[in-house]
């Protein structure tokens, strides 16, 4: 059985954490893979910590448990790292951690494969509002290659009205480019 790729996303209510997981799953599906996305089933409140899960595999996914040892962690709000202990669960052994931040050093994270992307800055520039999730999924796919940018674009286009989709795709592309450059620069180890 092929190993399922598991992604855990952390954000706050209102940041589109669940939507981001769903968009990644839909994009992977368009790439011909099996995928699954689900929320952590919290009570929906703006600002409260939220997590979501995504699995991608070449075979049908049957497993329904939450993800405790992810392959990738996406952190939408860096403030959660020190306040929510579940964010770094399994961080040591995961293949990569993506953080919405401009900060370079993360001594609290015991994993060298940390990539940051200024998703809030990109979102403000391209969308005009701090809607960061599409920028982050663009950055994520540059980092993990678990979905193609073309399929992500299609997923975003289907989800949002044309104008909203266009600005979000611009943010996604900008974040993708930003991470592509970083990966070449830093020779990201195991990815």
């Amino acid at each position: 059985m092929e190993k399922i790729q598991e992604i855990r996303l952390h954000g706050r209510g209102g940041q589109g954490t669940v939507t981001a997981a769903e968009l990644i799953a839909v994009a992977a599906f368009y790439d011909g893979k099996f995928s699954q996305a689900f929320p952590s089933f919290g009570v929906e409140r703006r600002g409260a910590p939220v997590s979501a899960f995504c699995r991608i595999s070449g075979e049908k996914i049957r497993l329904r448990a939450q993800i405790y040892q992810p392959d990738f962690i996406i952190i939408q709000d860096a403030g959660l790292i020190t306040t929510d202990p579940s964010v770094l669960q399994g961080a040591e052994k995961c293949r990569g951690i993506l953080i919405n931040s401009e900060k370079k050093d993360w001594p609290e994270i015991k994993n060298k494969n940390v990539i940051t992307v200024p998703a809030t800055k990109i979102a403000l520039e391209k969308i005009g509002k701090p809607f960061i999730n599409t920028a982050l999924i663009g950055a994520f796919t540059a980092m993990s290659k678990l979905a193609t940018l073309g399929s992500l674009r299609r997923a975003v286009e289907e989800r949002f009205p044309p104008e909203v989709a266009a600005s979000n795709i611009a943010a996604m592309q900008a974040a993708y480019d930003c991470v592509e450059v970083k990966i070449k620069e830093y020779k990201f180890s195991s990815i």
């Binding site: 997981a21 769903e22 799953a25 839909v26 599906f29 099996f34 995928s35 699954q36 996305a37 689900f38 929320p39 089933f41 996914i61 329904r64």
Partner: peptide, 10 residues
């Protein structure tokens, strides 16, 4: 509930 109703899958 949630485990199926709120899950995206093919």
């Amino acid at each position: 509930g949630f485990v199926l109703t709120h899950t995206f899958e093919p």
